[in-house]
């Protein structure tokens, strides 16, 4: 059944976007269910509603109009809606993810807020995300990347004392001959360090992390064509 009432459909999609922008998880879930009941195309509800909402909050975050508490709650609202809508997507082509990403915080470092938010944003934007957690040794990144056939591995480091672990991950990935692209991030990471580690790129903030992942996933696909 497809929705006939265009204004009703627009209302639902706008409602999903507003639910995320207003940090309202309950409304996001309620409207996701309503979208399913009323035959709104789930992919459209996700992309035009939820993802637009989280992108807007991400932009506010970059502009310092929103902060971490807002971003966390908005991302959760977005993912709660996606969790309901995603299983309803019928076309396999439509369901295809942008890529598989293994993400974690390096050994000796238990910071996770930035990493978690990046993981949430990537998931909201269509990636299949495997978050291996914090304080993870090099081997854990390699193991998971092999296990899931990762397209990208993301390593986060927040302290001056743990940054070198990112380089170890890059070296180990190359040594193992893994094709996955490697992106790094965290407060102590900059372009110079990203280059020094031999990684495929680094992201300065959440928005950049999503853009970089999309770019790396695309390049990865081109290379395997």
């Amino acid at each position: 059944m497809s929705i006939e009432n265009v204004s009703n459909k627009k209302e639902i999609i706008d409602g999903l976007r507003n639910a995320v922008v207003n940090y309202d998880e309950e409304s996001a879930k309620r409207l996701a269910k309503e979208a399913i009941e009323k035959g709104v195309e789930p992919l459209e509800a996700i992309q035009e509603g939820l993802v637009k909402g989280i992108t807007e909050v991400g932009e506010k975050f970059s502009a310092k109009e929103a902060f971490l508490p807002e971003l966390v709650i908005a991302a959760e609202a977005c993912l709660a809606g996606i969790a309901l809508l995603k299983p309803q997507i019928k076309s396999k082509k439509q369901m295809k993810s942008l890529g598989k990403i293994v993400i974690g915080t390096v050994y000796g470092d238990i910071h996770f807020i930035g990493k978690k938010l990046v993981a949430m944003m990537l998931e909201a934007n269509g990636f299949e995300v495997y978050d291996i957690g914090e304080d993870q040794p090099v081997e854990a990144f390699i193991k998971k990347a092999k296990e899931v056939g990762a397209d990208i591995v993301g390593a986060s480091a927040l302290t001056t004392t743990t940054r070198f672990e990112q380089e170890e991950i890059v070296k180990a990935m190359r040594r193992e001959g893994l094709k996955a692209k490697i992106m790094i991030g965290g407060a102590v990471v900059d372009a110079a360090w990203a280059e020094m580690t031999g990684s495929d790129g680094y992201a300065d903030n959440l928005q950049d992390a999503v853009s970089l992942a999309k770019e790396l996933a695309e390049h990865g696909q081109e290379e395997t064509m």
């Binding site: 050994y107 000796g108 470092d109 238990i110 996770f112 957690g133 914090e134 304080d135 302290t159 004392t161 743990t162 070198f164 672990e165």
Partner: peptide
């Protein structure tokens, strides 16, 4: 402890 040390803050 690993070379970078362990954190004294609460875990997740």
């Amino acid at each position: 402890p690993p070379p970078e040390g362990t954190h004294s803050v609460y875990p997740n």
